[in-house]
């Protein structure tokens, strides 16, 4: 595998949580590489550290040991501003519990990443284009009729699709999803996976966490997390 192809690479990742006197070592020197255009599923038992790993990969958390590099740049060496840019432009995050902002409409939630990276004037400059992109994404995800709704008016599956649209808004190089179907019934969950497959076919790199083997099978590559390391 050529190094140019690798979007995301981690080396010797270590992470532990301290709970009073006891120290829980969750990740123990984990190495991982994700190539551009891959659809990777990370599986593992509950508590094996899947979410922890994904948060570190998306720069929402910091490892105690080891490095994460994205397109060759070490995230650990980046400034706060650069990390914010990374979170805004390079990765899109999909959470198990959707995490939409209740006060904003579906369209506003989806547009949020673009709004967040611009000043008021900048926003007025690109508002049309951003709105068009958000609507396109929502239509693509089957939510064309829902753009004015508020999150609480949507079903779980619909909310997750809004969250996916938000994650894709700034055309990230990498889509990270933490149990995106964990809160949904199997039919709805399959719908979400269909979306992922389609996105992947169009070239989107995806790393998805799940504890369900059958869901993982939809991905191109399955990585098993056990005992703080990748099992090979």
């Amino acid at each position: 595998m050529s190094d140019n192809d690798v979007v995301l690479k981690s080396k010797g990742l270590g992470k532990s949580y301290r709970m009073g006197a006891t120290k829980v070592e969750v990740l123990k020197g984990l190495d991982l590489a994700v190539r551009r255009g891959e659809f990777v599923a990370i599986i593992g038992a509950s508590g094996s550290g899947k979410s922890t790993l994904l948060h570190i990969l998306g720069a929402l958390d910091k490892p105690d040991k080891g490095t994460v590099s994205f397109e060759g740049r070490d995230l650990g060496r980046q400034s706060g501003r650069e990390l914010n840019r990374f979170r805004n432009k390079m990765v899109g995050f999909v959470f198990q519990f959707y995490h939409l902002l209740d006060e904003l409409s579906v369209l506003e939630n989806v547009s949020l990443p673009t709004m967040a990276s611009r000043s008021i004037l900048g926003w007025f400059g690109c508002r049309r284009r951003a709105k068009k992109r958000a609507v396109e994404l929502l239509v693509q995800l089957g939510l064309g009729e829902r753009i004015k709704h508020k999150p609480y008016q949507l079903s779980g599956g619909e909310r997750q699709r809004v969250a996916i649209a938000r994650a894709l808004m700034n055309k990230p190089d990498l889509l990270l999803a933490d149990e995106p179907t964990g809160n949904l019934d199997s039919v709805t969950g399959n719908g979400i996976l269909d979306v992922f497959e389609e996105l992947n076919k169009a070239g989107q790199t995806i790393v998805m966490v799940t504890h369900d083997d059958r869901i993982a099978e939809r991905a191109g590559r399955i990585i098993t997390l056990a005992d703080g390391k990748i099992r090979t």
Partner: peptide, 16 residues
């Protein structure tokens, strides 16, 4: 605080 987490996950800075 959840909103703050969401905002930060999409790259909003602390100052903002």
């Amino acid at each position: 605080s959840k909103d703050i987490g969401v905002l930060r996950s999409i790259g909003v800075s602390n100052v903002d």
